[in-house]
Amino acid sequence: MNRKKVIDIMRNNGILLVILLLIIVTGIFERNFLTFNNLLNVLRQVAVVGIVACGMTYCIIGGAFDLSVGSVVSLAGVITILSINNGTNEYLAVLYGLSAGVAVGIINGVLISLINGRTGEAFIVTYGMQVVVAAIALFPSRGLFISGRISPGFFKSMGEGVMPIVIFLGIAAFMEFVLVKTKYGRTMSFIGYNLDVAKMSGLNVKLNRISYFAISGLLAGLGGVVLCSRVTSSNPTAGLNFEMDVIAAVVVGGTQLSGGSGSVGRTVIGAVIIGIMGNALNILGITAYHQQIVKGMLILLAVGMDILNKQIKLKEMAHDKVFA
């Protein structure tokens, strides 16, 4: 029984364990690695990915997918910085950035609801949206980097010091609470597991699904705002390939792509662990491009193991007797 439990834990958390091992090994060889300062720095870096990954987690648990988040990060950044440079009130500027994210999310949600799309359709529609939004982000500055004229204040504080970490963890905690403890979260799981059952249980499936995309858009927008606050500028291609890091964080955390089951908390762990891994790889002298290969393989491995696990579980279940 105990042995079975150990095997179960290994099976369910295989990838996390492998990465942990990597971190420990690096920690042993590199004294600077497991220091408070270094880890804080890593956390600052993963905060933006983490914020966006929280929204993506909702989307995936709700039985959909959002590939447009990377572009939204760019767009929200561009809009916010441009607004501030034009002398808009900084609160309003941030609001514009966030609204752009929500708007993209709502469009995604409405389109996908219209065709009653599941994960596959959601994937390809938001893929198109990714391209569209990326292009829109290029328009205002003709694709050029914009440096922000930022004076100390609300906006500037968003990216300073531990603020990104506070925003990230605060949002994650709130979203995990909503997911686990509230009607909205329960409904999300239900819809993600089985859309038809949810519909036949008298739930408003369409509206709820649109809201998942809207939240994903909102958090991608927030990610963009925090990012450009941190670097005090906006780059219209800042979010390029951003969705890869986000997806990696979610699947390594263990949220299932088939919908219904997952947790924002685990996404936080996924994001942090991937961040630390990246840092470890940097310290070991492995380039960003090598890391891209690792990330791609990581996504495959996480999802592949998840699916193999499920097949094993189903087989085990078939052996168990039906409880009559």
Binding site: R186, S189, F190, Y193, N194, D196, V197, K199, M200, G260
Partner: peptide
């Protein structure tokens, strides 16, 4: 099984 229950979820839920 298709439209009545979410089999992955508990009796309570």
């Amino acid at each position: 099984k298709a439209t009545g229950l979410v089999l992955d979820m508990s009796v309570t839920k």
